[in-house]
């Protein structure tokens, strides 16, 4: 599988934020997107998953077969917001996303065990602390399978132990032939990840 961007440009509210971004990733490779605030890291991720139209250039996903026809279908997007309902319990949230996103991978209970939240699955999501919410959102990446993970500041709010745990999770995903694109300020603890530096702020 190959995930590539060619001469990609993105804009926000008519203002160009970045342009001329190119990269090509094959299975098992990770890309760290770094850069100062306002450099367009989040915008790049939103363009990659098709939430924002690209102002120039194209995003390719090839070798996905019928199962993963395009980038949007093949990606997990973990944004700043956790996409969980505060009124529902953690398990209810995960069960919904597994049903809706399809391609079931781990069961919600297993996913919660993996991120170390197995004893609070019955609590409403709204009762969780910031770090726990983030870990529950990470568990969403595990309940249904997607080859490409687009992560926007995935470790914000996580403590050291959870960061290490998450690095291990990403390692497993890459070993399975997955692809990761992560926008971050903090080192994620991935060996051999390539780096894409988005330059000059506005």
């Amino acid at each position: 599988m190959r995930f590539a961007a060619e001469e990609l440009g993105g804009e926000r509210g008519g203002e160009p934020v970045f342009s001329g971004v190119s990269f090509a990733l094959s299975g098992g490779e990770a890309l760290m997107v770094t850069g100062p605030n306002g450099a367009g890291k989040s915008t790049l991720l939103r363009v990659l998953c098709g939430l924002l139209p690209a102002s120039e250039g194209v995003v390719h996903l090839s070798g996905g077969g019928e199962e993963w026809p395009d980038a949007a279908a093949a990606c997990h997007y973990l944004g700043h917001r956790n996409a969980m309902k505060t009124a529902l319990s953690v398990t209810e949230n995960l069960v919904f996303w597994q049903d809706f996103l399809g391609h079931g991978h781990l069961s919600p209970q297993e996913a919660l065990e993996t991120v170390g939240l197995d004893d609070i699955g019955h609590l409403p999501f709204g009762y969780l602390s910031t770090g726990q919410r983030r870990r529950a959102a990470i568990a969403r990446l595990l309940v249904s399978y997607r080859p490409v993970w687009l992560l926007d500041e995935p470790t914000s709010g996580l403590d050291k132990a959870s960061e290490a745990q998450f690095a291990a999770l990403m390692g497993v995903h890459l070993e399975d032939g997955g692809i990761i694109v992560a926008a971050t300020h903090l080192p994620l603890g991935l060996d051999g990840a390539r780096e894409l530096r988005l330059g000059g702020a506005r």
Binding site: C49, G50, L51, P69, D70, A72, A73, C75, Y77, G79, H80, R81, N82, A83, M84, K85, T86, W97, F100, L101, G102
Partner: peptide, 16 residues
């Protein structure tokens, strides 16, 4: 939209 679910619902557009 506020909790980010809308993004995921839109991304899943090719499936649903």
């Amino acid at each position: 939209r506020e909790d980010g679910s809308l993004d995921l619902l839109l991304i899943a557009g090719s499936r649903h």
